[in-house]
């Protein structure tokens, strides 16, 4: 029997890894991957709690929404990255400074 804690630990690991990737990497694609990890950590939490705490389908539905949102966000984000690469010929995050000043 797998306990709730193990789910939460996996989810925590995913969250922290995603956060670190998001902050530490300078590659925009890697940052997007980090965000996906964080979203998945949240989805995992929802499913785990719906199984162990409330025992209904609310969490499942919520995690489905999260997957949809994540897919949409990935599509938009990657489109932005492609346009950014076409303009700057790099995907280094620190080059995205057109709005400064």
């Amino acid at each position: 029997m797998v306990s709730l804690a193990s789910y939460l630990i996996i989810s925590l690991i995913l969250f922290v890894v995603g956060l670190v990737v998001m902050i530490a990497r300078k590659n925009i694609v890697a940052i997007l991957l980090g965000i996906e990890l964080i979203l998945n950590a949240a989805a995992l939490n929802f499913v785990a709690y719906s199984r162990y705490a409330t025992n209904n389908l609310d969490g499942h539905i919520f995690s489905l929404f999260i997957i949809v949102v994540a897919a949409a966000e990935a599509a938009v984000g990657l489109a932005i990255v492609i346009r950014f690469f076409q303009i700057k010929e790099t995907i280094h995050i620190d080059e995205a400074t057109q709005l400064r000043n």
Binding site: M22, I23, A24, I31, I93, T97, R100
Partner: peptide, 12 residues
């Protein structure tokens, strides 16, 4: 600053 990862750190 315009550096997005700085914003992430602030957020955390």
């Amino acid at each position: 600053s315009g550096k997005i990862q700085f914003y992430f750190i602030m957020l955390v």
